[in-house]
Design a protein around this nucleic acid. Structure first.
Lengths: 154, 154
DNA sequence: GCCAAACTATTAACATGTTAAGTAATATTG
DNA sequence: CAATATTACTTAACATGTTAATAGTTTGGC
């Protein structure tokens, strides 16, 4: 009668799952970065937070969460850990005691600058394997996709 | 002297992080699918496992992990949960007692077929927002990237 | 057949993802 | 200005990500 179910909606081929395709590609990329993350004793998410703070200014927790693509409960635990290890500092915002301002410490900055060369080396290897132009085009496509799916009606 | 650190390696702009770009795009996509996953009481990963088993045959745990982009410790816990709720069954492989064969149950198949229409509706919305051809091209690019980074020298 | 090496799955421990609930501070309304 | 709603962050609970260690099987020499 149809493709095998009562509702008449054929099951999409598993290879055409967009979340899976994005995840597979991301895992292939992360496999290149995990060794040095491990060597420097930081998780992927801890690195993202330090990375977002590198510019030097204080950043509010909520803003930091959006920048790093983290949910605030996760970020809360990550900041607790980073503060305990002396890589970041937190203080309440003077103008609004609800908000928390986060900044990287000199130790955190030193860690960032020690790992940066290893990270850049992997970027060069990835660009060599896939093509610098194709990588640039992919950044654009991914940003367009993100924008196309944001707030469809608001 | 240079871009701000002693090693002379300028820090890459945070917007040019490939893992972040892939993650942001994936999160934008997943935001469309999470509501129905939640309505049907399954996690994203549980859905991936059921989805991979839909064809009907028995699949080894290791193969299933690769198909679903899951590490075997995660899959082990997920299968325990899915088996407890009656959505999959496990049995040792007759020819090799080390291996475990997994299959979806009628209840699991029923869940798959109930949610499929909601999932397909979101795929249509995504294709409408971003363009069917661009989505197809993205699948290709992501697969090429994955292949380009797999086993560079083996 | 026996023993060491390799393989498969699981468990353990710690960190994060996800949703709901809680706490404190600020903004709003009457 | 007091009661209420809203906001920002945290905590709690359960599920998964990640790495290391463990237990049971099989395989390969010998």
């Amino acid at each position: 009668m149809n493709d095998g179910n009562e509702a008449g909606v054929p099951m999409r081929d598993f290879s055409r799952s967009l979340p899976m395709a994005l995840l597979r590609a991301r895992e292939a990329v992360m496999d290149r970065f995990r060794p040095s993350l491990r060597d420097f004793g930081v998780t992927e998410q801890q690195w993202r937070v330090l990375r977002a703070l590198y510019d030097g200014g204080e950043v509010e927790t909520g803003t930091l969460a959006r920048l790093c693509c983290l949910l605030t409960p996760s970020l809360s635990r990550i900041l607790k850990h980073l503060e305990a290890t002396g890589l970041v500092v937190r203080r309440p915002a003077p103008s609004d005691q609800r908000r928390t301002l986060v900044a990287v410490t000199p130790a955190g900055r030193a860690l960032l600058e020690r790992r940066a060369p290893f990270s850049e080396a992997q970027y060069r290897a990835i660009e060599e394997a896939f093509g610098r132009e194709r990588i640039a085009a992919l950044y654009e496509t991914l940003e367009d996709l993100h924008n196309a799916l944001q707030n469809p009606k608001s």
